[in-house]
Design a protein around this nucleic acid. Structure first.
Lengths: 102, 102
DNA sequence: CAGATATATGAACATATGTTCATATCTCCA
DNA sequence: TGGAGATATGAACATATGTTCATATATCTG
């Protein structure tokens, strides 16, 4: 059993992944790391919204940022988190398949 | 890449795990499945609060409920989700250890 | 340096969410 | 059947959160 502090930290991690917009950003970076404007375009969201969320994901070390001139390049920072999301993707895919079988 | 619907479903799963009270309930059931009143006592929360959260966890098939007379027994329903949480517990434990090393 | 481009940030707002309190529902037993 | 115990549920409330708009900051180029 995790400590109380760890429990809160774990919940915070899950909470960050628990918003569709943020999850899309993580998935997008997983598929192909990109600059902020590219992410905004790919996800069809405003630059401001993406940037606000990127800040949270960066602070939680889920994504990392590298500046290249005027642009900032975002990519997965935490492979463990990243593979956990992949695992959940797999899980949901399976669950849907099971339900379809019935 | 998951579909839009799947993305929302995945986010919803993470969101459910992203609240400290709910996470504590899941962890408690993982450690030792129990009746509602036991869970409330172990977590030091009100029966009402626990029950509200149990409803969400049950609906998401993260926990399952079995009635035994007047009491209702809750235990993990989804082993995959359960092991994913265990994985996150491990992850946070490691991260803390790494930071301590520095 | 001035302007343009890319990103970050702050304020404001509407909505979602967790918690509490009161009460309903269900189950057992005298 | 009536009452007590265990759980579920609804309303109300305070707070947290996601989004937008406006604007600041940073970087490059002429």
């Amino acid at each position: 059993m995790p400590s109380e502090d760890q429990t809160i930290e774990i919940a915070e991690m899950f909470r960050l992944m628990g918003d569709a917009t943020r999850l899309r950003i993580i998935l997008a970076c997983r598929e192909k790391p990109a600059f902020v404007n590219e992410l905004a375009a790919r996800l069809g969201s405003s630059q401001s919204l993406i940037s606000h969320h990127l800040r949270l994901l960066r602070a939680a070390r889920i994504l990392k940022a590298e500046r290249h001139g005027k642009q900032v390049f975002y990519s997965p920072a935490d492979e463990h988190i990243s593979s956990m999301i992949a695992d959940m993707v797999h899980h949901v895919g399976e669950t849907v398949a099971e339900e379809a079988d019935v």
